[in-house]
Nucleic acid binder design. Structure first.
Lengths: 367, 367
DNA sequence: CCTCCCAATGGAAACGTTTCCACTAACTGG
DNA sequence: CCAGTTAGTGGAAACGTTTCCATTGGGAGG
């Protein structure tokens, strides 16, 4: 790392004071044409660029915003971060990224670090909105921040999918398709805000449509053993005809496990996912899901931060029902009258009925 | 953003000079037990934390490393970035992330920005290794950098999959499974280093196994029209029994298009992808692919940078064949003897398969 | 008791900016 | 021709650190 020319070098070469160089380059304050010229020449010759560090110290502003998310291995966060990053960049800000791996301690540490680095604002997804050491820190330091993918406590800004409403929508979709007995497949249900919201929304939606309360299948991180869990679950709740998976990956895994159990999706079991990852549309059957727009959320969070920094009017949060939309797909099918009476037959077809399946594929192709 | 306490405030409160505070807190130089105590108390009371900006200016080191990648919407990069970020964090460094959206201008701008911010090193994926303004900048400024996912020119360090060797491996796998006539499906083939390497490696692999040279199907970004393209391609090359797609998404899309054309994968057509994204194993058939370890590559790049910064011995680059491995999957099947003679039958089974014929007719009608 | 040494400490410079202020010189209007 | 602007300029302070250097005081050794 060879040390760059400083403003002093430029001043010396141009034969003027540093103040003049600063004025010329920042176009702040007056300067004669002659001086301007000399400065510009010196800058070119030395290939001078300002040191942002010096600037930051003086202006106590870093043109950097921090971003704390659990993991960008999850495409939802990856897309959100990308969206946020782009907006920052457009506004001349850079983004410092820290992934916490869903670890609360990391989360606090990350926020502390970002504060030390004096970022101008922070976009973050916390584990628990109501009990976050990091958030307290931000508030006491009055650092601008915007939540992302957290359900906002009253009066706070969060760019997030309305999990509750979206899950209720899933219930209503099941209802429209004549499904009455459903299950909810979620991970780490108790510790995650998001999963809980989705379950509650789904349960309430089911209730309001006079469906039976959804059965809960809680799986752990490693989905390798999903197949036996699913089998036991369906045996225990034989009349279930539809499953709402708390995210698309788990929906995909469920479809696969179902297939291993010779349960045809969607004929014997309908699946609806959550998130709308793009592979959902590249597979067969395509995945019915709640489509969300992570990029837009990330971008929104950035805009909020930027408006807090420059004091401009903040962007409007999308209304509840604009944060998601239901996307139909081949993994969901209306329940036909005959199966409606007896879910058990539907869930465990003894047949190796190829014809049915072929016909199904045929029907689907014209889209 | 309320301004934090500075070291001066601490000194004043502790009744000593700033130098003492610095020495106590950094444990550099001597200090009496009494002073240490007083300083620590003051720090607690004021909730003092060092300003990294001040530190950076003085030490001309920022404990920040930059990362420039095309887009983290691509999970390969997302995972690599995450891996890199974790290693940095462990070493007490933070990561500044900029996505270029595959835009060369952005790339240069990003690097310039990072240099201005005086990052201690940069991890980057460039569009063209041999002609990158940004790389020139880094070299002239002697900024430590490590390439990621670029095929390194001689003598340079790059953490990347050996595309050429991996593609050759695909050819050998096809050969082991008795496939002789293959196709390569790639995007933006001419402008991308990576795609070209994969094609060349594949072609050479085919040649060395006495297979016919692979036919090339070049698709554009929007894969919506893949189905007709694939159909035309297979009509033009009727004896193709295996397709190597230049990444897993395109492999998935190919499987889907094939299904729409009533071509069964893998019975009528085997598909091998590249990257090893995790959904590849969640679908049916599972995707045969070249599995790579983006996280490990990203982590390696970080370690390289860190070693350049502190002058320690750099980590060893993985040997060529450790950067990837072939992962078998349901989308690949050995070619059975009967079909071996006539690939056309395999690709367009017109035989006694009633279902397929019907479908075929249906398929053709709209056109 | 006088040196000498060393631990403990504080002052001040330096890092690269921006900006306030003071100063000069060249105008303008009377 | 003089007073009063005003454009153009440079010096220096400030931002928050670290670190060099000088200073102090006390203890050990003579």
């Amino acid at each position: 790392m060879v040390q760059s020319a400083t403003i002093k070098d430029v001043a010396q070469r141009a034969g003027c004071g540093v103040a003049t160089v600063s004025r010329v380059l920042n176009q702040t304050g007056p300067a004669s044409a002659k001086m301007r010229e000399k400065v510009m020449v010196a800058v070119k010759e030395l290939d001078f660029h300002f040191s942002e560090v010096g600037r930051s110290l003086q202006s106590s502003t870093t043109r950097t915003i921090g971003c704390v998310v659990p993991s960008i291995e999850n495409p939802v966060y990856a897309d959100a971060v990308q969206g946020a990053q782009e907006v920052c960049l457009d506004a001349g800000y850079q983004m410092l990224l820290i992934c916490t791996n869903y670890n609360a301690e990391m989360e606090t540490h990350a926020i502390r670090t970002l504060i030390s680095k004096q970022v101008d604002g922070i976009i973050l997804t916390v584990g628990d909105v109501n009990n976050s050491e990091g958030l307290d820190l931000l508030r006491s330091r009055k650092v601008p921040y915007s939540l992302l993918y957290n359900t906002a406590p009253e009066g706070q800004i969060s760019w997030a999918v309305d999990d509750h409403a979206a899950a209720a929508k899933v219930a209503s979709v099941f209802h429209d398709n004549k499904h009455k007995h459903t299950g909810f497949l979620g991970l780490d249900f108790l510790s995650s805000d998001r999963a809980r919201q989705r379950f509650e929304g789904f349960a309430e939606g089911c209730a309001s449509h006079n469906m039976t309360p959804p059965a809960l299948l809680e799986v752990d991180d490693d989905s390798d053993d999903l197949t036996p869990r699913l089998e036991a679950f369906l045996k225990q709740h034989p009349n279930i005809t539809g499953i709402f998976a708390s995210n698309d990956y788990r929906a995909l895994a469920t479809i696969r496990s179902a297939r291993q159990l010779s349960i045809d999706v969607p004929r014997d079991l309908s699946i609806i996912g959550f998130d709308g990852i793009k592979v959902g549309q590249m597979i067969d059957p395509t995945l019915a899901t709640i489509a969300t727009e992570p990029r837009a959320l990330g971008a929104g969070a950035s805009k909020t931060i930027l408006s807090m920094i420059d004091g401009s009017t903040p962007p409007e949060l999308p209304s509840m029902d604009q944060t998601f939309s239901f996307r139909d797909g081949g993994s969901l099918t209306p329940l036909v009258a005959e199966s409606e009476d007896d879910g058990k037959v539907a869930a465990f077809p003894s047949s190796n009925d190829q014809t049915h399946r072929q016909v199904k594929i045929q029907q689907e192709r014209p889209q």
